[in-house]
Each structure stands twice: as structure tokens, then as C-alpha cells.
């Protein structure tokens, strides 16, 4: 039973990629860096390279963390769709297989100034 109802009922998702004018949502989580209270949400073009996305869109938001100066995205351990993943920073988000509403997680062992 996909919903308790008096007759068959099909819901319509409200956040499909078609609603974002050619852009898509991407979520990013810097593991164990809890100065940031949640994973960050971005609305970007899928043609953007992953490198540009991380350096120009994501990085400026991470500057408040004392570890941000030492952060090297290329040396981080990455996860996508809950499994280990090797990103291609020169390829686009789409070519990296980053879907609408995908969550990218990266772990930077050794960096934990704020102890989280």
C-alpha cells in the first residue's frame, strides 16, 4: 500500500528536475565538519565541471571553518549514492553521473580543528 486511501491514489513529486529551468540540485556534505549545521544545497547547471562547482560555488561557503585553508578536494575521500566514488574534476556534473538531488559526501582525515 503506497498510501492509505479510499481509492487508488498517485502522488506528483514537487521537486522534479523539470521544475528548475535547466538546472539541478546538488547536496554537499563535508563529513565531520559540523560548524555547518546541515548538508549544503546548490542549484547549478549540469554542464558545469565538477572542479568549477567545487572551487567557485562550494568552497566560498566553507571558509568559516578553520580547516578550509588546508582543504584539498582532490585528496578527499568521496562518496556518492552511499558508495565510495572517484570523481573526475574536469568532467561536468552530468558526465560524473551526478543526478538531480544527488548527495556528494567528502571526508578529509586529519582535518578536525573544531573536534567534530
Amino acid at each position: 500500500m503506497a498510501v492509505a486511501s479510499t481509492k487508488p491514489y498517485i502522488g506528483a513529486p514537487r521537486d522534479t528536475v523539470a521544475n528548475f529551468n535547466g538546472k539541478q540540485l546538488v547536496y554537499v556534505c563535508w563529513e565531520h565538519h559540523l560548524l555547518f549545521a546541515s548538508s549544503l544545497m546548490f542549484c547549478v547547471e549540469p554542464e558545469m565541471t565538477l572542479g568549477d562547482f567545487l572551487h567557485h560555488t562550494v568552497r566560498p561557503l566553507l571558509e568559516a571553518d578553520p580547516d578550509s585553508a588546508a582543504l584539498d578536494f582532490t585528496r578527499a575521500e568521496w562518496q556518492k549514492a552511499k558508495i565510495a566514488w572517484t570523481p573526475d574534476f574536469n568532467a561536468s556534473l552530468a558526465a560524473n553521473g551526478i543526478r538531480h538531488k544527488e548527495l556528494l559526501r567528502f571526508h578529509t582525515p586529519g582535518l578536525n580543528s573544531l573536534g567534530a
Binding site: 502522488g11 514537487r14 529551468n21 540540485l25
Partner: peptide, 22 residues
């Protein structure tokens, strides 16, 4: 009850959809 919750109007994603467009 997935058919119920897929319809959630989530404020953050909505902000990037028309008419607000971010």
C-alpha cells in the same frame, strides 16, 4: 506511504523554482 510524501512542498527546493528562482 511514499505516494503521500513525494508531494511534500519543501521550502528550500521551492525557493529555486519559479516564480522566486533563487
Amino acid at each position: 506511504e511514499p505516494e503521500k510524501y513525494i508531494q511534500a512542498v519543501l521550502p528550500m527546493p521551492q525557493l529555486f523554482q519559479p516564480p522566486l528562482g533563487g
